[in-house]
Computed example of a mutant assay.
Amino acid sequence: MRPAFRAPVVTALAAAALSLAGCGAMVSANPSTSSPAASPSSSATASATAPSSASPGPSASAGGGAGGAASPGTTPSSAPAPAGLKAYTFPNGHVSFKYPADWKVELFTGGGSPSESATATVIDASGTRQATVYAGKIADGVSHPVTRTVFESAPVPGLAGQPAPAAHYAFYVDRMDSNATYRMHLAAGAPKPGPGSALDGIIRTGNGVILADVQFIEKPFASDAAAKSWLAGAEGQALKALLLSISYN
Score class of each variant (00 low, 15 high):
Arg6Cys: 08
Pro8Phe: 02
Pro8Gln: 03
Ala12Phe: 10
Ala12Thr: 06
Ala14Ser: 13
Ser19Phe: 15
Gly22Asn: 15
Ala25Cys: 12
Ser28Ala: 15
Ala29Phe: 05
Ser34Leu: 05
Ala44Trp: 01
Ser47Thr: 14
Thr49Val: 14
Ser53Tyr: 10
Pro56Trp: 04
Ser61Tyr: 09
Gly64Asn: 07
Gly64Thr: 12
Ala70Cys: 12
Ser71Leu: 14
Ser78Trp: 06
Pro80Asp: 10
Pro82Ser: 08
Gly84His: 04
Gly84Thr: 03
Thr89Arg: 13
Asn92Arg: 13
Ala101Trp: 01
Asp102Gly: 06
Phe108Gly: 05
Thr109Gly: 15
Gly111His: 12
Gly112Met: 14
Ser113Ala: 15
Ser113Gly: 13
Thr119Met: 14
Ala120Gln: 06
Val122Ser: 03
Asp124Leu: 09
Gly127Met: 10
Ala131Tyr: 02
Thr132Leu: 09
Val133Thr: 04
Gly141Ile: 05
Pro145Tyr: 14
Glu152Gly: 01
Leu159Pro: 00
Gln162Phe: 01
Ala166Cys: 09
Val173Thr: 09
Arg183His: 12
Ala187Tyr: 00
Ala187Trp: 01
Pro195Tyr: 11
Pro195Leu: 12
Thr205Tyr: 03
Asn207Ile: 09
Val209Pro: 03
Leu211Tyr: 01
Ala212Arg: 00
Phe216Cys: 06
Glu218Ser: 13
Lys219Tyr: 09
Lys219Gln: 13
Lys228Met: 11
Leu231Cys: 03
Gly236His: 05
Leu244Phe: 05
